[in-house]
Amino acid sequence: MSDSNTTHFTNPSTFILLGIPGLETAYAWISIPFCCTYTISVLGNFTILFIVKRETSLHKPMYYFLCMLAITDLVLSTSTLPKTLSIFWFNSREIDFSACLTQMFFIHCFLAIESGIFVAMALDRYVAICHPLRHSTILTNSVVAKIGLAVLLRSGMLTLPFIYIGSRWPYCTTNIIPHTHCEYIAVVRLACGDIRISSYYGLFAVFFVTGLDVFFISVSYTQILRAVFRLPTKDARLKTFGTCGSHLFAILAFYIPALFSFLTQRFGQNVSLHFRILIGNVYLLVPPMLNPIIYGVKTRQIRDRLLQLFSRKWA
Rank of each mutant, 00 (worst) to 15 (best):
T10C: 09
P12K: 01
S13R: 09
I16W: 13
I16M: 11
L17I: 04
L17G: 04
L18S: 15
I20K: 13
P21N: 02
G22E: 11
L23I: 00
L23R: 09
E24S: 14
A26F: 09
A26S: 11
A26H: 12
Y27L: 06
Y27G: 01
A28T: 13
W29A: 15
I32C: 10
C35E: 13
C36N: 10
T37K: 05
Y38D: 05
Y38W: 15
T39P: 08
I40L: 15
V42A: 09
G44Y: 03
G44C: 11
F46D: 03
V52H: 03
V52P: 00
V52S: 01
K53W: 06
R54D: 08
T56E: 11
L58A: 13
H59F: 06
F65H: 01
M68L: 08
M68C: 08
L69F: 08
L69S: 12
I71K: 05
I71W: 08
I71R: 04
T72R: 05
T72E: 05
S79Y: 01
S79G: 11
T80A: 12
K83N: 08
K83H: 14
T84I: 13
I87K: 03
I87M: 11
F88M: 10
W89Y: 14
W89F: 15
W89G: 00
F90D: 12
N91R: 14
S92M: 12
R93Q: 15
E94C: 11
D96G: 14
F97W: 14
S98D: 10
A99K: 06
C100N: 08
C100I: 09
L101V: 07
T102L: 14
T102Q: 13
T102R: 15
Q103N: 04
F106M: 15
F106K: 01
H108E: 06
C109T: 10
F110R: 02
A112G: 07
I113K: 02
I113V: 14
E114W: 13
G116W: 02
G116E: 02
V119T: 09
L123T: 05
L123H: 05
D124R: 00
D124F: 04
